[in-house]
Nucleic acid binder design. Structure first.
Length: 970
RNA sequence: GCGGGUGUGGCGGAAUUGGUAGACGCGCUAGACUUAGGAUCUAGUGCCGCAAGGCGUGGGGGUUCGAGUCCCUUCACCCGCACCA
């Protein structure tokens, strides 16, 4: 058996590919294009782990396959290099994030290169490179200088809006304060900008951030745990800050509709649909009692009782998807965080409500989500008028209503909304059923079907009709209108951080002004310290020279969020060195958009939504030709790690074997005991109070063998956090650890890098093994148990080229029919499976093919040549070497793909299973073209069949050509 | 609470349109070759059963000549989330 010197082969061909620019993408080749992309990584300090190659290799296989098929392939790689970890590291060490990022990227690139991925490295992008983020800033300027024209349904330059203001003022637009053309002309620049801010696709608004006074900084959601800061455990409160937003809500409908045009996994589309959250219904005004009603003249029982700020709001606007149930609305609820609440509070309720609002502020969104069963709220003291019943209904405030959705207020219909129902039950509010169905003494009836009752003019209607009728009446009454509502909110685009793209914006007082294209890039200044300023501003704010832009102008000191750079990077790959434009027209026209995008579903509603937004804005402004960036999307599953947990007996202060912990771990509390099965309770009753305490620790997996036994002598000597600690082995002299499957991470000491695997088996084996693990979309723990099988397979392939004396020997004799059949069934299978990304079954098919050829002793050029091309996308190094052995000039990567010929697969006989009453009982070989009657007759004539049919009548016979024969007897 | 997903041998998994369940690989068993085997080759390997045969795709029910696949119901686990009016 000829061994493969894979280390030498892989190095040799990687060098060849580099030297000869084998993977260079050329727009002028005249071939059709194919763009294969994997989500670029954030280069963390941990380096690449075995999970990364899953998507990289899959995309690489498709890219190489398409190249063989004659496509001009764009398959680039880059780095999402701005981000929090580098900045946190900088705060701790003082090292410049740019330096640590560069180091991490170098490590990643080295690891990527040894995997033999067919990247065109000339096209590498790094989002933190000024040459790149110059164009991120440029695109931001385009967004800033645009507005969404609802008439043309696309973004347009802001000038087109200004021109309309000049001619007809604000006519036809919803603005805070209407104005005429003359008003506009008379406005100061600041006043004009204030109006434009209501239209720009990038605008400033005040919104709440997680503010940690003790740390003097704004925290990401990630950094807040149970209402306190992750590091230090300091209290976190809400603070309003001026921030940039992208008006993604204007694109809600197009982002929704666009999903119909792209080939993405249905669950992913569903997540985006839910996130956009389109619902149709009505927006309705409810009058607040005590306020003069302009309409039909309702009578109020009492005069206004508001104190302090004078009268409250005249109306409260609500959005409802169930206008048919207005007759059943018995109270209203407004969001505690909305401004409305303060205006509605009466003197006698002020104390209670403010106390409640304080309570809500202390609750993180996590809290509010976790216990849905806790119903809380407070009565504001005010009443509204139900517009259909003319009855007074109390206005409450409760945390289940969010200021950010709809209008921040709801009409509560407890009979037909489960949350309203729970609320009404808790606070003793009336529940009036208005749709027949369900049993509202037990629970609300939320279904959108039934007949309207207790509902005046809606009585007797079906829900669907009642909704329409109700909206018509609402519109006639002039108190509301039909409305489509989206859950989607505008995207926050500011971060009070150092390591991100600076905004190309300066402030004249409060007025933002865009910088000129010629001023770009606005580069990050050097800072003395990466530590927070204490004011909530980014560290840049402390660099006065930089902030001062001359003429009394001050630079924006926020930076852009992590997703800015990743919202357009696929476009830069098309033309990465262009100094004149973010992408050249001709290059963009050639590559268009990404044909296959592979990445994790955790980006479903973040990156993948923002990327679509940016593409659509650029499309509207005429900069790109496609309005969807990723035509086909595939989610890869997560490769988890197996951690090893070691337990410590805290009282004895020594580490112990797992079974010691297990047998002592009966420390349930009484609540748990009540829910335990009886057998467990018995066990518990016989148990004494726990006298032992344990803690646990992750041990590095490299010190633990396949039986979960720790090499404790070595571990306690070498692992820094274990040295000097006491331990006690069990009576077999072992310390056993507990294996736990969890996410691979450095802190859990369970990271497996591809490096060691490549060293032991080679990149080709690792590539194929990762594909062999299972469907690309499945998550699974990393397990090397089967890697030998793949390694053996490659060796078998290799040995087809060698004779018994381990000399290369390839025959020029014509291939037999059988050999061609083996080859062509493989071609058919591989081609189909790559197209549907079933790469695991590709590997199986290769194994079958090689096993067959091996038993046929086939070493014929006619077979081995196409086979080598077939294998090349999967195991590119060994394929190149084999190609050379075949006497062909490199590179195999540009060899045309073998053409499948079905003629070789034609069978002249087929083995039919014979089923009796649906169970397989026998087999029979019949000619391929046999007809039903003859086949059944032959089947019935078989002795083994007669055994089953004897003494019974044949009731039915099924013959499916090339499939089965089924005989029903009885 | 809402949304999405997954359940198939000892293990990873296969079965593309309702048509031979368990391909391929790991592991395991036996044998061959061998100084040796953690190399290689051959044979076997879903479960129960001596066999005939029976049972088998989380559980229960249904449609069908035929169900892993379709329908109803139920259980378990995983992932995501903004209580979304």
């Amino acid at each position: 058996m000829k061994e493969i010197n894979f280390a030498e082969i892989e190095k040799k061909w990687q060098q060849y590919w580099r030297d000869n620019q084998v993977y260079k993408a050329d727009e002028k080749s005249g071939k059709p294009k194919y763009y294969a992309l994997t989500m670029f990584p954030y280069p963390s300090g941990k380096g690449l782990h075995v999970g990364h190659p899953l998507s990289y290799v899959a995309a690489d296989i498709v890219a190489r396959f398409k190249k063989h098929q004659g496509f001009e392939v764009l398959h680039p790689m880059g780095f999402d290099a701005f981000g929090l970890p580098a900045e946190q590291y900088a705060i701790q060490t003082g090292k410049h994030p740019a330096d640590t990022t560069a180091e991490n990227i170098a490590t990643y690139k080295k690891q990527l290169e040894i995997l033999g991925l067919s990247y065109d490295w000339d096209r590498e992008v790094r989002t933190s490179d000024p040459e790149y983020y110059k164009w991120t800033q440029w695109i931001f300027l385009q967004i800033f200088n645009s507005w969404y024209n609802k008439e043309t349904d696309r973004a347009e330059p802001i000038e087109t809006l200004v021109n309309r203001f000049k001619v007809e003022g604000s006519k036809g637009f919803e603005v805070e304060n209407g104005f005429t053309a003359d008003d506009w002309a008379a406005f100061s620049e600041a006043e004009q900008e204030k109006v434009l801010q209501q239209f720009r696709l990038a605008y400033l608004a005040y919104s709440e951030v997680n503010w940690c006074e003790a740390l003097g900084t704004v925290l990401a959601n990630d950094e807040v745990i149970n209402g306190v800061s992750e590091r230090g455990g300091h209290p976190v409160t809400k603070k309003k800050m001026r921030q940039w937003f992208l008006r993604i809500t204007d694109y809600a409908e197009r982002l929704l509709q666009g999903l119909e045009t792209i080939d993405w996994p249905e669950p992913l589309k569903e997540m985006q649909r839910n996130w956009i959250g389109k619902s149709t219904g009505a927006q309705v005004e409810f009058k607040v009692r005590g306020v003069e009603f302009k309409g039909e003249g309702l009578k109020f029982k009492e005069p206004p009782s508001h104190a302090g700020e004078g009268l409250g709001p005249t109306t409260i606007e609500i959005f409802t998807t169930r206008p048919d149930t207005i007759f059943g609305s018995t109270f209203m609820v407004v969001a505690p965080e909305s401004d409305l609440v303060q205006q509605l509070i009466t003197d006698e309720q002020r104390g209670e409500v403010n106390q409640y609002i304080e309570y809500v502020k202390s609750r993180s969104e996590r809290d509010r989500m976790a216990d849905v069963k806790t119903v809380t709220g407070a009565f504001t003291g005010s009443y509204a008028i139900n517009p259909f019943t003319n009855e007074e209904i109390p206005i409450w405030t409760a945390e289940y209503v969010l200021a950010s959705y709809g209008t921040g207020a709801v009409m509560a219909v407890p009979a037909h909304d489960s949350r309203d129902y729970a609320f009404a039950k808790k606070f003793g509010l009336p529940i009036n059923q208005v749709v027949s169905g369900g049993d509202i003494s037990k629970e609300s009836y939320d279904a959108k079907e039934g007949t309207l009752i207790n509902s005046g003019f809606l009585n007797g209607m079906e829900v669907k009709d009642a909704i329409n009728e109700a909206i018509e009446v609402i519109e006639e009454m002039g108190i509301g209108k039909r409305k489509v509502n989206y859950r989607l909110r505008d995207a926050g685009f500011s971060r009070q951080r150092y390591w991100g793209e600076p905004f190309p914006i300066v402030f004249d007082g409060e007025t933002p002004k865009p910088l000129n294209e010629g001023d770009l890039p606005i580069t990050l200044p050097e800072v003395v310290s990466y530590k927070p300023t204490g004011t909530g501003e980014s560290p840049i704010a402390a660099v006065n020279d930089w902030v001062d832009a001359g003429n009394g102008l001050r630079r924006e000191t926020d930076t852009m969020p992590g997703y800015a750079g990743s919202s357009w990077y696929w476009l830069r790959y098309m033309d990465p060195h262009n100094k004149e434009a973010f992408v050249g027209k001709d290059k963009e026209a050639f590559w268009q958009n990404v044909d296959l995008y592979i990445g994790g579903s955790e980006h479903a509603v973040g990156h993948l939504l923002y990327a679509r937004l940016w593409q659509k804005v650029l499309f509207d402004l005429g900069y790109v030709g496609k309005d969807e960036p990723f035509q086909k999307m595939v989610n890869q599953g997560m490769i988890q790690g197996t951690s090893q947990i070691m337990y410590r007996d805290d009282l004895k202060n020594e580490f112990i074997s797992y079974e010691e912990y297990e047998k002592s771990n009966w420390t349930w509390n009484s609540d748990e005991v009540a829910n335990r099965p009886a057998s467990d309770k018995e066990q518990l009753e016989s148990f004494e109070e726990p006298t032992r305490k344990f803690s646990s620790i992750h041990v590095p997996i490299e010190y633990v063998n396949a039986n979960n036994e720790l090499d404790y002598k070595k571990a306690f000597e070498e692992v820094p956090y274990l040295t000097g600690h006491k331990y006690s082995a069990n009576d077999k002299g072992k310390i056993v650890c507990q294996p736990v499957v969890e996410k691979m991470s450095k802190s859990k000491h369970n990271v497996v890098t591809p490096d060691a695997m490549v060293e032991k088996y080679g990149a080709d084996t690792l590539r194929m093994y990762e594909m062999f693990l299972g469907p690309i979309t499945d998550s699974k723990p990393w397990n090397t148990a089967g890697i030998d099988g793949v390694f053996k397979f490659l060796r078998k392939f290799w040995n087809l080229f060698y004779n018994k004396q381990n000399e290369p020997e390839i025959s020029d004799a014509a291939a037999t029919k059988e050999e061609l059949k083996v080859l062509h069934s493989c071609i058919q299978k591989i081609e189909g499976d790559i197209e549907r990304l079933a790469l695991n079954t590709c590997v199986s098919s290769f194994m079958i093919c090689i096993n067959d050829l091996q038993s046929l002793n086939c070493n014929k050029r006619e077979i081995l040549e196409p086979l080598t091309v077939l294998l090349s996308p999967f195991a590119p190094h060994i394929a190149e070497e084999a190609w050379q052995l075949l006497g062909k000039a490199p590179s195999v990567t540009s060899a045309p793909y073998p053409v499948f010929n079905p003629a070789y697969l034609v069978e002249d006989a087929h083995v039919y299973p014979i089923m009796i009453n649906g169970k397989k009982r026998h087999e029979i070989t019949l000619p391929a073209g046999i007809g039903q009657d003859e086949a059944i007759a032959k089947a019935l004539a078989e002795e083994a069949v007669q055994k089953w049919t004897e003494g019974k009548s044949l009731r039915k016979q099924i013959f499916v050509p090339k499939k089965i024969i089924n005989l029903v007897v009885g």
